[in-house]
Nucleic acid binder design. Structure first.
Length: 515
RNA sequence: GCUCCCUUCGUCUAUCGGUUAGGACGUCAGAUUUUCAUUCUGAAAAGCCGGGUUCGAUUCCCGGAGGGAGCGCCA
């Protein structure tokens, strides 16, 4: 019946799936992965990916949070069909279904007060019994209802037997019905509760496959009872394992469980994050680097594992480096140009760091910029500096810089020499290489550079190599001081590329400063 | 406490009864190299424990241990 095995293979019938976040803040990494799985499954089956905001609880109503979620999905390039559905806006329909359930005897009015329920639960807990609340109103005559009390509507859940969830990931999961109490589907204020709203919306939206976190597995049992109460067909369930922090506990801020926008700010590429996320709980043999197109053709429930995975920041970084190397210079330039204006270094630098949480490339970068580039407080400032020095120069050094970049932020960092003002502040590690011998070598090279016919990296390297052989000096003994003089650092892109991009005048001037 | 779920290198995972238990990240060693990085080579590193079933179990079953999730007029 609901176990649609044909959906496991490519070319499966078209699915309708949805991502249904609660607008509590940003799009967190676990949610992003759930959205990705849904999106991939929709693409794989040629189906539809819908978006629904679970904003039934008005206290959680937060337009900024909704915007952050949409923004995160957009950045991850997980496009959805149509407008995002507001669950709150459908409350009238939810009420209608609650009334229908009441009418067909699958639900009843309950006049218990919250206090009554609480004390019963406390008592059960104290006695070590299951904290189920069995409403007396299930069997009482509604005529006995106390006046002036607005009732809730509870589902009349079966007391005997069992409810089985046929899950694509977890297999057959059976709950004893006596483990479920009669859940409230309509609050006393007339508003629907989560489980009712989800079932009604999924049904009305034509959702065929519910792919969500494993934390909803018991809800699947409860929701099954609502589907049954209405006589509606069940969706195919797929409860994917959760993501845990490095210590194996539920992922939280403590583990650096950041929103998608934080990963953007740290300079991650969406396709890298997607590739990383999909491999957390899903696999296709030994494949690690998988293009999105390949993912779409391969993704299915068979590849999903059952156990929770821990988030590994280092592996994400490695993947990001891979994708950066694969990306064209023009594209990278564009991405850096769009990323920088989003950053406020002073704000980022204030981020509280937990020593146990993964490193924060954005915080390290912000601190480095604030410390070494006077007058630059924001990414926009920094971008302006690069533009002043020549945005095309950033592009010119990019082929060398991207080889050494793990995140997009490593690009401006690696090219920082372009915007440094003379005389350069030379870091201590670099200073050490500029000794007496180095100075005389630079002095000897200056006239050669001055008359060099061809100011290309290759020609400059040939020139220096020739000098190195003539004088019997190791190339390293010359290149390192040149690097220090030209970039102020002990680590930089290849020094001849640096010279080529800097141009003859600036190169000679910087060398002259130390000679 | 109750219910459900999970358990292969440090981490992500492959294996769908027979493999020297494979790959990736990380780690370590080496090669290449003007620094760093890339790239390449190599190394160390795993079946939670105890019972079955079987000619044979990492794989199937049971028990234990450990971990996780859920138990709201939250979602």
């Amino acid at each position: 019946m609901t176990n649609d095995t044909s959906s496991k293979t490519h070319g499966a019938s078209k699915s309708v799936v949805r991502f249904a976040p609660s607008p509590t803040g940003y799009l967190h990494i676990g949610g992003a992965r759930t959205a990705l799985f849904n999106w991939l499954y929709a693409k794989h089956t040629g189906g539809t990916f819908l978006l629904r905001i679970e904003d039934t609880d008005r206290e959680r109503n937060n337009p900024a949070a909704v915007a952050a979620i949409l923004d995160g999905l957009t950045w991850l390039e997980l496009d959805w069909s149509g407008e995002a559905v507001s669950q709150f806006a459908r409350a009238a329909r939810h009420r209608e279904v609650a009334e229908a359930l009441l009418a067909n005897g699958a639900a009843y009015h309950c006049y218990c007060s919250p206090e009554e329920i609480d004390s019963a639960r406390d008592k059960a807990k104290a006695e070590g019994r299951p904290q189920l609340f069995l409403s007396p109103w299930r069997d009482r005559d509604p005529k006995d209802a106390p006046a002036g009390i607005k009732p809730t509507i509870r589902l009349k859940a079966p007391r005997e037997g069992e409810t089985t969830v046929d899950d694509q990931v977890q297999g057959l999961v059976t709950f004893q019905n006596k483990e479920f109490d009669d859940l409230i589907i309509l609050r006393s204020d007339g508003n629907p509760t989560y489980n009712l709203a989800v079932v009604v919306d999924d049904h009305d939206m034509g959702v065929t496959h519910v792919i969500r976190g494993n934390d909803h597995l018991t809800n699947a049992g409860r929701q099954t009872q609502i589907y049954n109460g209405m006589g509606w067909p069940l969706p195919v369930w797929a409860h994917v394992p959760l993501i845990h922090g490095g210590d194996g506990a539920k992922l939280s801020k403590r583990h650096g469980a950041l929103g998608a926008e934080a990963y953007r700010a740290m300079g991650f590429l969406p396709q890298a994050l997607r590739n990383y996320l999909v491999r957390l709980g899903w696999s296709h043999g030994d494949d690690e680097i998988i293009s999105t197109d390949q993912l779409i053709t391969w993704f299915n429930f068979d590849g999903l594992g059952k156990s929770a995975a821990r988030f590994d920041f280092k592996k994400l970084l490695d993947l990001n480096g891979h994708y950066i190397r694969e990306t064209t210079v023009a594209d990278l330039l564009d991405r850096v140009g769009k990323l920088l204006p989003l950053l406020n270094f002073e704000d980022i630098a204030k981020t509280e760091l937990d020593p146990k949480a993964p490193p924060r490339p954005d915080v390290a970068f912000a601190n480095m910029i604030l410390a070494t580039v006077p007058g630059v407080k924001t990414g926009a400032d920094l971008k302006a500096r690069f533009e002043k020095a020549g945005w095309d120069k950033l592009g010119a050094i990019l082929p060398a810089v991207k080889e050494r970049s793990k995140t997009l932020l490593d690009i401006p960092e690696g090219a920082l020499f372009l915007i440094q003002q003379r005389p350069l502040a030379v870091e201590d590690k670099a200073k050490a290489s500029i000794d007496g011998d180095a100075k005389s070598a630079i002095t000897a090279l200056l006239p050669r550079f001055t008359v060099a016919q061809d100011w290309s990296a290759a020609a400059l390297e040939a020139e220096v190599r020739a000098y190195s052989e003539e004088t019997g000096t190791k190339l390293g003994k010359i290149a390192q001081p040149l690097r220090a003089a030209l970039t102020g650092r002990a680590v930089s892109p290849p020094v001849f590329d640096v010279m080529a991009v800097l141009g003859r005048d600036e190169t000679l001037a910087r060398l002259g400063d130390v000679a």
